[in-house]
Design a protein around this nucleic acid. Structure first.
Lengths: 353, 353
DNA sequence: CCCTAGTTCTGAATTGATTAAGAAGCGACC
DNA sequence: GGTCGCTTCTTAATCAATTCAGAACTAGGG
């Protein structure tokens, strides 16, 4: 069976290719009767409709935006924060008939290829930890929005003040009287050298993302409260429930046990709560836990956390891509955050002592 | 600034367009030294790389698969089942360097347009309720996999035996001694006429999906247990936590209150648990609740439910699209399900009476 | 010296549409 | 009758690449 194109139909009906094209794309340009006949013949021949790639090529518009993740897609879908963001972005995209093309990071070279081959009108870089493929994406010379990290001069940006927000979280816990505080740093899962990752004074590079910013915020608060940062129990893990559980176990099995854990994401906070429950440690009487993000599961779990407008971040990024701003000044949207006190934080057990 | 294409570079370097193309796509076809020079000039001119649409057009391959949902994308991301499925599908896609293009259903005509314009090599129809756009998708004459519903002759299919699985769920509850049983039917959110939706004997059309199949399974079990289906309290809602809460409230405020609720999705079961908690109804002592799907949140909540291999469904569908089967017989994959008894089902309070 | 093979590059055809410019036909108006 | 404008359709150019067949050149073997 031959391939059916506009030309095939044109020959059959005895009109020009242009007219057939118009029958599909600009009905006002031809006689209604003729149009019906063309569509009928198209149906008979099993014509699948105008070829999208050819159309895109000619029109110079794909009607799709690409979302590039720092981790594998499988991981992105396991993360409530990422899912919430996508939810927002997808909702504005689809309302304008724009598709969403997801691009993960299975391996550096594969991702590079996929980015180069993506038929899209713009990219959103969703990268809590700074994106190693920023360069690759920028090279496409399409509209781009970065979310969270990195901030690139001249590129629209959507994010929050991670450091300040984390500081407020820590202040809340310290304000309750906690002094034996533990912190869990999160770092990306996929392979990158993470040497010195916890050294907050090291100059920031692309990898200086939300994880380190939040750590820095915790440190700010601790030092203000007269705590030495080096006295704070510090461990690190990834934003993955299972891995985080292991790190949480290390913290909670320490002697003396910390009375409060600052978790830089809710996912990690949940892991701490899991392990505490396993150990029979009562929260918040014996242990305070605070998270970050306020994912949907946080409220039912009663988790004290820092709320950031997850879905709104998505809609904002989506809008910036669906209608890229024409002016010269790239918008830099900083979203508000809010401390949400629930039932996992309380004064330490020895508060009166 | 002029647009930079292969030709621009070719003219600058003084070679043919073909050679420049080879420099990017087939490095073995030209001298290493020349290639370096071409790439260098490309860099100077700010060439964004071979145009993906042109490439796709010529190659006849997009390297992307489309996933079409029955609901809005925003809804898809709110549903753990959909997210789990996507997780599986995305993981196999990205491992082969294949992109994932998401298509929601904001409005019938917009969706039709988006499907026609999607630059993809195949489609996955993800549709718990039978997809109204099956025809539109099939018209593209690309490889297709339908998931759950509908089953179309000659089109690869991935699903489970909803009816049989639901029957086993109901049998579990009835086996515990429950006789005042309530059922919550789920139906799609977006606008379609739902008249007669609960009439299970009406011949199945495209809309006859998981919701009705599960209901039918409940009925099978009830009738086997000597219960009249018309005596079973039946209400319907959507697979949305908030809407389901309202329906759950109606059920639980009834007098006499049912001792067991069969929820055809975990999401609905959670809503029932929420309302029960609000009312101070003790689960499972006063009320048994059983769900369906076994989404990740089910285990921590202790929800008794029917497990279906959500992520595996995704990987299976993904594989069928990344490497479409060449043979004539379209594969029809029926996945296994399993009753998972946890802590939300028990004998009814009046069991001894 | 000739023939073959291999490397490196070119020219032309091809992929499947959209679009701008223009031609033909026809009625209305002055 | 001329011309203006409208509808309807066509011609040719364009979008930006890939690919196939073949040309030019070099080197090696006989």
């Amino acid at each position: 069976m031959e391939r059916v194109t506009l030309q095939t139909i044109a020959d059959r009906v005895g009109v020009s290719r242009t007219t057939v094209s118009n029958a599909f794309s600009r009905p006002d340009q031809l006689n209604e009767e003729l149009r019906r006949r063309i569509l009928e013949v198209a149906g008979e021949l099993g014509y699948p409709g105008p070829h999208p790639a050819a159309r895109t090529l000619r029109r110079g518009r794909a009607g799709v935006i690409g979302v590039v993740f720092t981790e594998t897609l499988s991981y992105a879908f396991a993360d409530s924060y990422a899912v919430g963001f996508l939810r927002g972005l997808a909702s504005v995209a689809e309302q304008s008939g724009t598709g969403v093309h997801l691009i993960g990071w299975p391996s550096p070279d594969l991702a590079e290829e996929v980015i180069g081959d993506a038929v899209v009108d713009g990219f959103c870089l969703f990268s809590p930890e700074g994106h190693p493929l920023v360069e690759t994406v920028l090279r496409r010379r399409l509209p781009v929005v970065t979310v969270d990290y990195p901030y690139v001069e001249g590129v629209p940006f959507v994010g929050i003040e991670d450091r300040a927000a984390a500081r407020r979280a820590a202040e809340h816990v310290l304000g309750l009287g906690h002094r034996r505080v533990a912190v869990l740093g999160v770092q990306p899962v996929v392979g990158r050298t993470n040497r010195d990752w916890l050294d907050l004074d090291r100059p920031g590079d692309l990898r200086f993302g939300a994880g380190r910013a939040r750590l820095a915020g915790y440190r700010d608060a601790c030092e203000d409260a007269g705590l030495e940062w080096k006295d704070v129990v510090l461990d690190r893990t990834a934003n993955d429930r299972e891995l985080a559980r292991r790190a949480a176990a290390r913290l909670l099995d320490a002697d003396p046990r910390p009375t409060a854990v600052l978790a830089p994401t809710d996912e990690v906070a949940f892991a701490v709560l899991d392990v505490a429950a396993q150990r029979g440690i009562e929260v918040p009487r014996e242990l305070s836990v605070i998270g970050f993000d306020d994912v949907p599961a946080a409220a039912p779990a009663g988790l004290t956390t820092v709320r950031q407008p997850i879905t709104e971040k998505g809609t904002t990024a989506g809008r910036l891509l669906v209608e890229p701003p024409r002016g010269e000044a790239a918008p830099c949207v900083i979203m508000p955050t809010e401390l949400v006190v629930r039932r996992t934080t309380a004064p330490p057990p020895d508060a009166g002592a």
